[in-house]
Design a protein around this nucleic acid. Structure first.
Lengths: 338, 338
DNA sequence: TTGAAAGCGATACCAC
DNA sequence: GTGGTATCGCTTTCAA
């Protein structure tokens, strides 16, 4: 990343060596705590380094060294969603325990931006990569031969790439939500969904359809709204559903953003529809809103562990892990439909 | 960051040059779109690079180049708090517009971890540094001469360092909150505060004391709880306040984590105290909770702009910016005390 | 235990 | 327009 150390005023290994009156190599050995350094020499070098305020230039080290870097990179699509940060946090904890640093970049759900961020990391030769992708095609990674860097995709699959993945049981979670609503007597069930292009969203919608089909409840396409995109969009979607001639008696929001928007829309409603979301939402407990709960922390932990194995040389085919979800029933869906 | 490109199977500039039948230098010129390259040569090099899947080794480039890196680093203390992510997001947008990448590291409110993360970035020679610090002493940065890298501290000051800072008007915001409660007739006002070591917290408490003093309302130290640390701690603190022989009629939560805990504690209360928080909280609108609102997005934007100026060579003394806050009154404090 | 020399992959300077 | 050569700061042989 930049400008000569000399220009920046930072001392180099050579200067430390000169100050200590030893060769560059000996200084290097001492500073890296390698064997075969006389105690006196060791002390002299350490002292000189401390006095000069020496900091190694990791660009030079990593360029030359065969050892693997101590940095793992993570690319996140959307930082406004606490869900992804919980993943990052957990992954960071696992990696830190192994002496690895986790650096994060944001793509803001923009494929071009994602490519830039990933390139920025790969071209700096990070040890591994965790990706929550906003792309539906990742062959560009393969073509650039970049995939030599161990990589794990989180929450969203790596299309066209032979890489490890960790995802939630989206279909199962959605089915649990819908089955619950059906059991409460609901038959007109609305759905507020995120971007139709998102694999998670598609799987969740598939779960909805399957649950309804198995219960032999006819599907009213007018009740399924997609591409709500964010909380504001979801709020509008909910209002739209409620003004229908025959509005739904229950609504399933396919992720936490959708749920937040839904809650806003029914905040002042005299007779709000039953509401259940996917993903946890902070304060959903206070508001008494049911959710299909999942553990982004587990996703981060499992993903980081899988990545570590690859970094440590694990070979073999790609692994695809599905993490379970859990139905959490609260006031918003606790009352059976009369 | 690591391992030879050759070992990784990545092609080097030399291989591209050979494939194109030109010298290394010419290949470099073409790939960097420099002037003085014959169109035919240019095409040949580009084609060779594409076929080989060439990716520049930025370690080597940045090591040699005098140009400044295109990476700015940000260190965040706590990723579980959406507040800091809003800062990061806004900063990233500003930097991206200038072609800079923002990479983020997390310290998890641990001083030692913060030092590791900052070193990891500085030793890779990032172009600039944005820091939300969890340390109360930053002289180690100065001693290590690392501070040659342009740096801006956000939300929390850089103690003992001559660096730019962007903070909120914590004192003013707190005073506005307390003045509002006083105007509503409250005299027994409780406070739920974060770690006493945090400068932001201290300023907010100072604002509380000043407002009470000016109104000549005696301060009951038993109503001021600090070190609640997180939402769970705040919840416990609120319960503690409510079980007091003479409980407060209003409570001020000094940040968003404290506010969330406070809301949880009074969720089922028949006669909850008036409640006002500092920082926005998602769904506070739905729950009707008043807040002292601020703009982490502005903080990120302003901080990034100040950093850019330093990166572009701005000299001069440190600047300390204070961003304003805004009182947002909702149901939780809308009813005057009888 | 220590050091001299080569080299990592790329850019800068200066000839041609 | 093009290419040779030195160099960036550090690690890695291999010899002393």
């Amino acid at each position: 990343m930049s400008t000569h150390d000399a220009l920046r005023g930072l001392p180099t290994l050579r200067q430390v060596a000169e100050a200590a009156g030893v060769s560059i190599k000996t200084a290097s050995r001492a500073l890296n705590d390698e064997a075969h350094v006389a105690p006196i020499t060791y002390e002299r070098v350490k002292k000189a380094a401390a006095e000069l305020g020496y900091r190694p230039n990791l660009l030079a080290r990593d360029l030359r060294s065969h050892r693997t870097s101590n940095v793992v990179a993570m690319v996140i699509a959307d930082v406004s969603n606490p869900f992804y940060l919980a993943i990052a946090y957990a992954a960071g904890q696992v990696l830190a325990a192994q002496g690895l640093l986790l650096f994060t970049g944001v793509s803001d759900e923009d494929p071009a931006s994602e490519a830039r961020v990933i390139s920025g990391f790969l071209e700096r030769r990070v040890a591994g990569l965790l990706v929550v992708s906003s792309r539906t095609d990742h062959r560009h990674l393969q073509h650039h031969a970049e995939s030599r860097t161990p990589t794990v995709f989180l929450d969203r699959p790596g299309h066209g790439l032979e890489v490890d993945e960790v995802m939630f049981d989206n279909v199962g979670g959605s089915r649990a939500a819908i089955d619950h609503l059906l059991a409460q007597g609901h038959r007109r069930i609305g759905v507020i969904g995120d971007l139709g292009s998102l694999p998670t969203h598609r799987e969740r919608i598939a779960g909805v359809r399957r649950a309804l089909a198995e219960a032999e409840v006819p599907i009213d396409e007018g009740l399924i709204i997609t591409d709500a995109h964010d909380a504001d969009g979801a709020e509008a979607a909910m209002r739209q559903l409620l003004t229908l001639p025959s509005p739904p008696t229950a609504v399933f929001a396919t992720n936490n953003r959708m749920a937040v928007g839904g809650m806003r829309a029914v905040a002042d409603a005299a007779h709000p529809p039953a509401l259940i979301g996917f993903d946890d939402v902070e304060l959903a407990d206070v508001l008494g809103v049911s959710v299909v709960s999942n553990s982004p922390a587990d996703m981060g932990t499992v993903g980081a562990e899988m990545l570590l194995e690859r970094i440590h040389g694990r070979a073999g085919r790609r692994r695809r892990v599905r993490l379970p979800t859990e139905l959490v029933v609260r006031r918003s869906t606790a009352t059976p439909l009369e």
